[in-house]
Amino acid sequence: MVSQFTPIKAQPEYIVDAERRKLFDFQELWRYKELFYFFTWRDIKIKYKQTVLGFLWAVLQPLFMMIIFTLFFGRALNVPSQNLPYPVFVFSGLLLWNTFSSGLTNSANSMVSNAQIIKKIYFPRLVVPVSSILVALFDFLMAFILFIPLLIFYQQKVSITALWCWPSALVVCLIATMGPGTLLAALNVKYRDFRYVIPFLVQVLFFLTPVIYPVSVLKYPILQYIIVLSPMYAAIELFRQPLTGVDIQSTFLILSLSSSFLILFVGIFYFKRTEDFFADFA
């Protein structure tokens, strides 16, 4: 029963030095790549444990939201929808928006909810918020399965550009989530005030992002420019392009993308700068 230990191999030394700290260690992240998987896998399992409908919830949530928005905005308020059937328009937006909002909420709370682990064991802290965003990606895939019958039902034409537009929309969405996600995760460890800011922030961003309305609704160009700064604008527009066939304004796209990347750099920089002290504050 006693196991044989594998022989000791020569190991590279590692140094912890109070004077010199590494800001970003990509090699280390790579060594811990399996942990990304395990954290994501654990969170997905936990999320749907002891639920009767299980993974179906990932589909039902956007479905109900779509129905509600269609009734109020599509029918009652007659919001334009770039020549798409309003349900298709809103669902395509919600698909990505839900990924963003649940990813952001998950990752912002991730460091605090995993405090017990962080205080007891070392691993690159970035694994935690990033994995919780990947959980939202799983929900996206589930909801996407519903999206296809919806397209068929409305006999919606899909352009061939979907082949590259949809994956890149997803990547842009993840980048847009990761920036504020890591930033809020780090802030939340130190100042629990952010726990109350997050739901509010998500709500405000929802209305400031063209999810349930097209940008063209806005009369003043200055307003359009402000709305377009939302990091999620680029993702949603990219995702809808194969459906609407409307060309995306490149200035808008660039503005939204640069805002995404800027927040990503700020977020990761702040996270890395404060992560050493998470165990002391958490």
């Binding site: 140094i15 912890v16 030095d17 109070a18 004077e19 007891k120 070392y122 050493d276 165990a279 002391d280």
Partner: peptide, 9 residues
């Protein structure tokens, strides 16, 4: 888990 204020390991 937590960094030293001074010193080296």
């Amino acid at each position: 888990i937590t960094p030293p204020t001074k010193g080296k390991i």
